[in-house]
Design a protein around this nucleic acid. Structure first.
Length: 447
DNA sequence: GTTGCCGGGAG
DNA sequence: CTCCCGGCAAC
């Protein structure tokens, strides 16, 4: 493994190898390091692929989404011109690879752990340890601080569209120089906390489903993955047949994220949309379980707060040729109109409902800025001249909201009488009525 | 903190 | 369907 690694680092990244190879044998004693190795191998692949168009497709399939975070960090850390170029290429490739894999969201946890450990190792085993300075560390010392500054920045992959930021380098030619180091560190906190608080959350069906809707005129296609929608836009609307290589990220402006509350909505949507069921990926990872809200949060911020930095830099294409986003945005609100019904229930505990925080409404998320402007009630007006999208959405709203409202009202008030639990106690649980045993409404001592 | 129980998962 | 439990709201 090590030798392979070294080989692959021959060109631009011999540096990288230099930093690692001396330590590689000794540093492995900490914990789960196999992921690390794999991760590094992946990174190498990406880099190489950036250089070699032929290997690209192969490596793309292999590394998929996981490279993402690492690939963005590396350039940040060392900003040589080469690295910048690589950065662009890498970002583009990541996009491409993502588009080939609808699985983007499911497994980030494990990956991140591996990643973070890998980066931490980078930091700790870096050339700054006195021992390693002997060889070549001194020369590269300039890069080491940045290595350490963002050692574990794996947060991006956490979210569904976390890859968006990676498009950035290719967009504005950020050049790696302007990117502030603050953002990674900030993200680091969120990501890690989210990740490590609940390593293996109980699998629970999430009622939230994130879809991505094409805003192009008369299209309205809805896909379950951002990558998919990007590709759709790129190929169908932007007429670009080439890979994401030649994409400048413009696609991002032509789709929007939709959050669907209920399964019924999702079903309705999926059945309405021309998406083949096979493309549909499972609902967003149920990972942060107590933080049902938190999950969507973590998905949204990357889109806005994180992407904001680059996007704010240049208010780009949106203005020039945004498709008839208007009616479609309206449609989106119609989708969201179902949200107010459920949001109180899921967010009333005040845990993490920052998804609608004002700071999130960056230039990117037009659709979030002006909530139910036109769609204020659950009432479905029997208007006949509805737009296609509108009509669809209203149907959906009508489908989804009533049950929600009903359930909100129908929570049984707590009975004041003693129940099995109180009467018999926990130790005599077998004497409880079955309902009590199953934590249902007591059947024995009804009120 | 405890208790009742809804919603939903597992089998 | 039974069995169980997370998590919420009321205490």
């Amino acid at each position: 493994m090590q030798s392979k690694l070294l080989e692959s680092f021959t060109f631009a990244h011999f540096v990288y190898a230099e930093l690692h190879s001396p330590k590689n044998e000794s540093q492995k004693g900490e914990g789960s390091h196999s992921p690390e190795v794999v991760e590094e191998q992946r990174m190498v692949d990406v880099k190489r692929a950036g250089r070699d168009p032929e290997t690209r497709s192969v490596s793309l399939l292999e590394q998929k989404r996981k490279v993402v975070s690492s690939s963005i960090d590396v350039p940040h850390a060392r900003r040589s011109e080469e690295e910048v170029d690589m950065d662009k290429v890498t970002a583009a490739m990541v996009l491409t690879s993502l588009s080939t894999s609808p699985l983007v969201r499911s497994p980030p946890v494990k990956v991140n752990e591996g990643l973070s450990s890998s980066w931490k190792d980078n930091g700790s085993a870096g050339p700054f340890t006195p021992s390693s300075n002997s060889s070549s560390g001194g020369y590269w010392s300039w890069s080491a601080p940045s290595d350490q500054s963002n050692p574990s920045t794996p947060s991006p992959p956490l979210s569904a569209d976390s890859f968006k930021p990676f498009r950035v380098p290719s967009l504005g030619g950020v050049g790696g120089g302007t990117a502030g180091p603050e953002d990674p560190s900030l993200e680091e906190q969120d990501g890690s906390s989210l990740l490590f608080d609940e390593p293996i959350p109980r699998k629970r069906k999430n009622s939230m489903k994130v879809m991505f809707k094409c805003l192009w005129k008369n299209c309205g296609k809805v896909l379950s993955t951002a990558a998919g929608i990007q590709r759709h836009i790129r190929t169908i609307h932007l007429g670009r047949n080439c890979d994401s290589d030649c994409s400048d990220g413009e696609e991002d402006f032509y789709y929007t994220e939709i959050k669907l509350n209920t399964d019924s909505v999702a079903d309705g949507l999926s059945s309405l949309s021309p998406v083949s069921p096979s493309i549909l990926s499972p609902p967003p990872p149920p990972s942060p379980l107590p933080s049902l809200c938190q999950l969507p949060d973590s998905q949204r911020p990357p889109q806005s707060s994180d992407t904001k930095e680059p996007h704010a830099g240049g208010t780009t294409p949106l203005s020039r040729s945004a498709p008839s986003a208007l009616y479609l945005i309206h449609t989106d609100h119609a989708y969201q109109a179902t949200a107010p019904v459920s949001i109180p229930s899921s967010c009333s505990n005040g845990s993490a409902c920052t998804s609608f925080a004002p700071n999130n409404s960056s230039s990117f998320s037009i659709s979030w800025q002006s909530p139910p402007v036109t769609f204020t009630g659950n009432t479905v007006s029997p208007s006949k001249s509805q737009g296609f999208g509108e009509q669809r959405s209203q149907t959906i709203a009508a489908l989804s909201s009533p049950p929600r409202a009903a359930t909100a009202l129908s929570r049984k008030v707590r009975g004041e009488g003693k129940k099995c639990r109180k009467v018999y106690g926990m130790e005599n649980r077998d004497m409880w009525c079955t309902a009590c045993r199953w934590k249902k409404a007591c059947q024995r001592f009804t009120d």
